[in-house]
Amino acid sequence: MKNAHARWVIWSSLFVGLILYVAPLPLSWRWFRPELPLLVLFYWNLALPHRVGIFSAAVTGLTLDIINGSAVGALGFGAVISTLFILLNYQRIRQFDTVLQSVAMGLLVGLALIIERWLHGFLGMAGTGLGFIYSLPATILFWPLVRNSLRGLRRYYEVE
Protein backbone atom coordinates (compact mmCIF):
# COMPACT_ATOMS: atom_id res chain seq x y z
CA MET A 1 0.00 0.00 0.00
CA LYS A 2 1.69 3.16 -1.16
CA ASN A 3 -0.80 5.80 -0.20
CA ALA A 4 -4.14 5.52 1.55
CA HIS A 5 -6.31 6.21 -1.49
CA ALA A 6 -3.90 7.92 -3.87
CA ARG A 7 -6.50 10.58 -4.52
CA TRP A 8 -3.82 12.95 -5.79
CA VAL A 9 -3.80 10.85 -8.97
CA ILE A 10 -7.39 11.93 -9.66
CA TRP A 11 -6.73 15.62 -9.18
CA SER A 12 -3.44 15.64 -11.05
CA SER A 13 -4.99 13.78 -13.99
CA LEU A 14 -7.74 16.41 -14.11
CA PHE A 15 -5.08 19.13 -14.03
CA VAL A 16 -3.08 17.50 -16.83
CA GLY A 17 -6.29 17.21 -18.85
CA LEU A 18 -6.82 20.92 -18.33
CA ILE A 19 -3.28 21.79 -19.42
CA LEU A 20 -3.59 19.66 -22.55
CA TYR A 21 -6.96 21.25 -23.24
CA VAL A 22 -5.52 24.78 -23.33
CA ALA A 23 -2.34 23.73 -25.16
CA PRO A 24 -1.83 26.02 -28.15
CA LEU A 25 -3.34 24.96 -31.46
CA PRO A 26 -3.65 27.04 -34.61
CA LEU A 27 -7.00 28.84 -34.60
CA SER A 28 -8.30 26.92 -37.59
CA TRP A 29 -7.58 23.57 -35.87
CA ARG A 30 -9.51 24.38 -32.77
CA TRP A 31 -12.54 22.47 -33.98
CA PHE A 32 -10.68 19.23 -33.46
CA ARG A 33 -9.83 19.84 -29.83
CA PRO A 34 -11.34 17.12 -27.63
CA GLU A 35 -13.00 18.16 -24.38
CA LEU A 36 -10.30 16.41 -22.36
CA PRO A 37 -11.07 17.70 -18.83
CA LEU A 38 -14.67 16.51 -19.13
CA LEU A 39 -13.55 13.11 -20.43
CA VAL A 40 -11.13 12.70 -17.52
CA LEU A 41 -13.88 13.71 -15.09
CA PHE A 42 -16.33 11.25 -16.63
CA TYR A 43 -13.76 8.44 -16.46
CA TRP A 44 -13.34 8.92 -12.73
CA ASN A 45 -17.12 9.15 -12.35
CA LEU A 46 -17.44 5.79 -14.05
CA ALA A 47 -14.54 4.11 -12.29
CA LEU A 48 -14.97 5.50 -8.77
CA PRO A 49 -18.53 6.81 -8.47
CA HIS A 50 -18.28 6.82 -4.66
CA ARG A 51 -15.16 9.01 -4.80
CA VAL A 52 -15.62 11.41 -7.70
CA GLY A 53 -19.12 12.81 -7.96
CA ILE A 54 -21.17 15.94 -8.05
CA PHE A 55 -18.74 18.11 -6.14
CA SER A 56 -15.75 17.23 -8.35
CA ALA A 57 -17.92 17.80 -11.41
CA ALA A 58 -18.88 21.27 -10.17
CA VAL A 59 -15.24 22.15 -9.43
CA THR A 60 -14.09 20.94 -12.87
CA GLY A 61 -16.92 22.73 -14.66
CA LEU A 62 -16.36 26.00 -12.80
CA THR A 63 -12.64 25.85 -13.53
CA LEU A 64 -13.39 25.33 -17.22
CA ASP A 65 -15.79 28.26 -17.15
CA ILE A 66 -13.10 30.50 -15.71
CA ILE A 67 -10.50 29.20 -18.19
CA ASN A 68 -12.80 29.72 -21.16
CA GLY A 69 -13.87 33.16 -19.99
CA SER A 70 -17.52 32.20 -20.20
CA ALA A 71 -20.19 32.83 -17.58
CA VAL A 72 -18.95 31.28 -14.33
CA GLY A 73 -21.28 28.44 -13.40
CA ALA A 74 -22.69 27.59 -16.82
CA LEU A 75 -20.48 24.62 -17.63
CA GLY A 76 -20.41 23.83 -13.89
CA PHE A 77 -24.13 23.25 -14.12
CA GLY A 78 -23.80 21.21 -17.31
CA ALA A 79 -21.02 19.03 -15.92
CA VAL A 80 -23.05 18.33 -12.77
CA ILE A 81 -26.05 17.21 -14.84
CA SER A 82 -23.94 14.91 -17.03
CA THR A 83 -22.19 13.50 -13.96
CA LEU A 84 -25.53 12.83 -12.34
CA PHE A 85 -26.49 10.84 -15.40
CA ILE A 86 -23.30 8.78 -15.11
CA LEU A 87 -23.73 8.21 -11.38
CA LEU A 88 -27.22 6.87 -11.97
CA ASN A 89 -26.15 4.59 -14.84
CA TYR A 90 -22.48 3.75 -14.23
CA GLN A 91 -23.06 0.01 -14.00
CA ARG A 92 -24.77 -0.03 -17.35
CA ILE A 93 -22.27 2.28 -19.08
CA ARG A 94 -19.36 0.14 -17.84
CA GLN A 95 -20.82 -2.85 -19.72
CA PHE A 96 -20.96 -1.02 -23.05
CA ASP A 97 -18.40 -2.02 -25.66
CA THR A 98 -15.79 0.58 -26.63
CA VAL A 99 -17.66 2.07 -29.56
CA LEU A 100 -20.94 2.45 -27.74
CA GLN A 101 -19.19 3.81 -24.66
CA SER A 102 -17.33 6.40 -26.75
CA VAL A 103 -20.56 7.57 -28.34
CA ALA A 104 -22.23 7.70 -24.93
CA MET A 105 -19.37 9.84 -23.61
CA GLY A 106 -19.63 12.09 -26.65
CA LEU A 107 -23.34 12.53 -25.97
CA LEU A 108 -22.73 13.31 -22.30
CA VAL A 109 -20.08 15.90 -23.18
CA GLY A 110 -22.52 17.31 -25.72
CA LEU A 111 -25.23 17.45 -23.05
CA ALA A 112 -22.94 19.44 -20.73
CA LEU A 113 -22.03 21.82 -23.56
CA ILE A 114 -25.64 22.27 -24.65
CA ILE A 115 -26.64 23.17 -21.09
CA GLU A 116 -23.75 25.64 -20.99
CA ARG A 117 -24.88 27.34 -24.21
CA TRP A 118 -28.47 27.29 -23.05
CA LEU A 119 -27.54 29.09 -19.84
CA HIS A 120 -25.52 31.56 -21.90
CA GLY A 121 -28.59 32.30 -24.00
CA PHE A 122 -30.62 32.57 -20.83
CA LEU A 123 -28.20 35.25 -19.56
CA GLY A 124 -28.43 37.16 -22.80
CA MET A 125 -24.89 36.36 -23.93
CA ALA A 126 -25.06 36.21 -27.70
CA GLY A 127 -25.47 32.74 -29.09
CA THR A 128 -22.57 31.14 -30.85
CA GLY A 129 -24.72 28.67 -32.73
CA LEU A 130 -24.20 24.95 -32.84
CA GLY A 131 -20.48 25.32 -33.50
CA PHE A 132 -19.54 23.43 -30.37
CA ILE A 133 -20.68 20.10 -31.79
CA TYR A 134 -17.66 20.10 -34.09
CA SER A 135 -15.50 19.14 -31.11
CA LEU A 136 -17.60 16.06 -30.37
CA PRO A 137 -16.10 13.70 -33.01
CA ALA A 138 -12.63 14.37 -31.59
CA THR A 139 -14.00 13.84 -28.09
CA ILE A 140 -15.53 10.50 -29.11
CA LEU A 141 -12.29 9.38 -30.77
CA PHE A 142 -10.24 10.28 -27.70
CA TRP A 143 -12.38 8.40 -25.19
CA PRO A 144 -10.74 4.93 -25.61
CA LEU A 145 -7.30 6.52 -25.24
CA VAL A 146 -8.32 8.47 -22.13
CA ARG A 147 -10.04 5.44 -20.62
CA ASN A 148 -7.17 3.03 -21.18
CA SER A 149 -4.44 5.36 -19.97
CA LEU A 150 -6.37 6.39 -16.87
CA ARG A 151 -7.24 2.76 -16.17
CA GLY A 152 -3.53 1.97 -16.27
CA LEU A 153 -2.84 4.82 -13.86
CA ARG A 154 -5.62 3.75 -11.54
CA ARG A 155 -4.36 0.19 -11.35
CA TYR A 156 -0.73 1.18 -10.98
CA TYR A 157 -1.37 3.61 -8.14
CA GLU A 158 -4.21 1.56 -6.65
CA VAL A 159 -6.53 4.54 -6.58
CA GLU A 160 -9.68 3.80 -4.64
Binding site: F55, A58, I66, A71, V80
Partner: peptide, 29 residues
Protein backbone atom coordinates in the same frame (compact mmCIF):
# COMPACT_ATOMS: atom_id res chain seq x y z
CA UNK B 1 -24.45 22.29 -5.85
CA UNK B 2 -26.72 23.05 -8.80
CA UNK B 3 -28.15 26.06 -6.99
CA UNK B 4 -24.62 27.26 -6.21
CA UNK B 5 -23.69 27.01 -9.89
CA UNK B 6 -26.78 28.96 -10.88
CA UNK B 7 -26.20 31.67 -8.31
CA UNK B 8 -22.56 31.92 -9.41
CA UNK B 9 -23.90 32.75 -12.87
CA UNK B 10 -25.50 35.89 -11.54
CA UNK B 11 -23.02 36.83 -8.84
CA UNK B 12 -19.99 36.68 -11.12
CA UNK B 13 -21.44 38.67 -13.95
CA UNK B 14 -21.20 42.32 -13.14
CA UNK B 15 -21.05 42.52 -9.38
CA UNK B 16 -18.49 45.20 -8.53
CA UNK B 17 -17.85 43.74 -5.08
CA UNK B 18 -16.12 40.70 -6.43
CA UNK B 19 -14.07 42.58 -9.02
CA UNK B 20 -10.82 41.83 -7.12
CA UNK B 21 -11.72 38.14 -7.09
CA UNK B 22 -12.35 38.25 -10.83
CA UNK B 23 -8.96 39.87 -11.34
CA UNK B 24 -7.29 37.09 -9.38
CA UNK B 25 -9.17 34.44 -11.34
CA UNK B 26 -8.15 35.93 -14.68
CA UNK B 27 -4.50 35.96 -13.63
CA UNK B 28 -4.77 32.41 -12.33
CA UNK B 29 -6.15 31.16 -15.65
Amino acid sequence: VLALCLSALFVFRENPRIAPLRTIMIDAT
